[in-house]
Simulated scan of single mutants.
Amino acid sequence: MAKLKIASWNINSVRARIDIVRQFLEEQQVDILCLQETKVRDDTFPFQMFRDIGYTHFEINGQPMHHGVAIISKLPLHDNGRHDWQDNGEARHIGVRLDCGIRLENVYVPAGGDIPDRALNPKFGQKLDFLGRMIRWSEDLKEPTLLVGDFNIAPLECDVWSHKQLLDVVSHTPIEVETLGRLQAAHDWVDLGRTFVPPPARLFTWWSYRAQDWAASDRGRRLDHMWASPEVARLATNHYVCEPCRSWIRPSDHIPLITELDV
């Protein structure tokens, strides 16, 4: 068996934060990095930094200023694919097959705006519809798969700093949580975060930039996830988050997640 180490990180502009991406990769030595919210066109992606430290395989789906996803790897990537779950051409998904036979799917679910009502806020409806398309994809999924990314939903009461105060806040509303639950059930996805860090233990991945001192206030949410097909989940040996990254120079408001597999 070989050890496979995969990371996922909403980087909130890969070019603006290229220094901390390099710092993270040099510290953690992951085999594969999945990024969301890269905010860069494919032709201006910063390939050279990654090549300089041994990452020579890329699959990217970008657009200027908004959205964008990428898979950067030391290992070969095959059979790339893109799903338009947003149904408007936004760059929110990229998927590949690894040599070990596992599909790796990297997704950036829309945030959904500020008002949790599709009649008043079209962005919220788009988010729910995005998840609906993912549910239909999951129902037909046959390949062993690792699904990673920024889902923009904190499903459990312990996945937010205050369940009561966030019930009407987009990312933790009952309809979002219910819809994410249907997505999970559609393929019997295993939530690796809560497999290795069982509830009600604290496990946040995002803190707002608005907080003067994010660590002191600790008003976090678990918006980023790694889910595995049941057969892939059995290969997982570890899963953790890298919270110190939130304090690095010019940080993302999200932190990286890492899963280790024996394949």
Rank of each mutant, 00 (worst) to 15 (best):
S8H: 01
R15W: 02
D19A: 06
V21Y: 01
F24Y: 14
Q28G: 00
Q36L: 06
D42S: 01
F45P: 05
M49T: 13
D52C: 00
Y55N: 07
M65C: 02
H66L: 02
H67L: 06
G68D: 00
V69P: 01
L75R: 12
L75V: 09
G89V: 13
E90F: 09
V96N: 08
C100N: 15
I102D: 05
N106Q: 12
V109S: 10
N121E: 15
D129G: 10
D129K: 10
D129N: 14
L131N: 04
L131E: 04
R133M: 06
M134V: 02
W137G: 02
W137K: 11
P144A: 07
F151C: 01
V160K: 13
W161K: 04
K164N: 07
K164E: 12
L166A: 12
V169S: 10
V170T: 09
S171K: 09
L183Y: 14
W189T: 05
V190A: 10
V190S: 08
L192A: 06
V197K: 05
A215P: 03
A216C: 07
S217T: 10
G220S: 15
G220R: 11
H225E: 02
A228D: 03
N238H: 15
S247P: 01
S247V: 00
R250M: 03
E260V: 07
D262F: 09
